[in-house]
Write a protein that binds this DNA or RNA. Sequence first.
DNA 1: GGCACCTGTCAAAGAGAACTGACACATCTC
DNA 2: GAGATGTGTCAGTTCTCTTTGACAGGTGCC
Lengths: 118, 118
Amino acid sequence: MTGGTAPHPTGDELLRILAALGNPHRLRIVAALTEGGRNYVSRLARELGIGRPLLHMHLQRLEAAGLVAGSLEQAADGKAVKYFEVTPFAFALTPEAVAQAAATITQEEKETVKETAK
Amino acid sequence: MTGGTAPHPTGDELLRILAALGNPHRLRIVAALTEGGRNYVSRLARELGIGRPLLHMHLQRLEAAGLVAGSLEQAADGKAVKYFEVTPFAFALTPEAVAQAAATITQEEKETVKETAK
DNA sequence: GGCACCTGTCAAAGAGAACTGACACATCTC
DNA sequence: GAGATGTGTCAGTTCTCTTTGACAGGTGCC
């Protein structure tokens, strides 16, 4: 099994992943979930010492990159709790991998689309 | 030699590397240097279609992360030219690697320390 | 009801990164 | 000298990201 190391992520995916991990808080979040296992937002925020809104945003970014996965569950006492856990990702960071991914970067046409306005 | 895959970068190093690669331009720069081999600033800027000052900044960031290396050389006709080339890096991106690196993140004490305030 | 816990979102402020244009310097060629 | 090439840096604008505080909702327990 396994699937080996380094699938072939598209340029945009790799970019999203690298950008997501290139942040102290998010790196710590992934580390906390890796070592402590699944955890829910409010608790994680308390443990990391950051605000809930902030953690919420970071988790969203990590989830968008596919590095963590969240699921809203129903606790035994009926309260809604959102648990997050890390996705077992594995990427090889080498010049070749970068070169290959870079070839498929979507040029994000940041066209300030003021299309015909009105 | 080599050192195989995945040395044990400190948290700050990993952070610098990920942040450096988490950018479209920089990812393309590494790709260009990987495929086209060493190249000098002005030429690279022309090929990538971006301004020299901008490329200069990105290269500096990549160099600070240890992903590329530059050397100011003397061309045959006496002109000074700065060549850049990629450093053969190799990192494994996994939850475990992240957890391990995250443990050594320098907490940048953003001290705003207004201790004792008044 | 009131309190404690969970969830989510928003707007506004703040910080940092990105980008541009202009400048100064050097060398070789015409 | 003028023009083309290369180097570097600086100041200022712009943009994106980050961060906070306040608000909305939900449930269970005393």
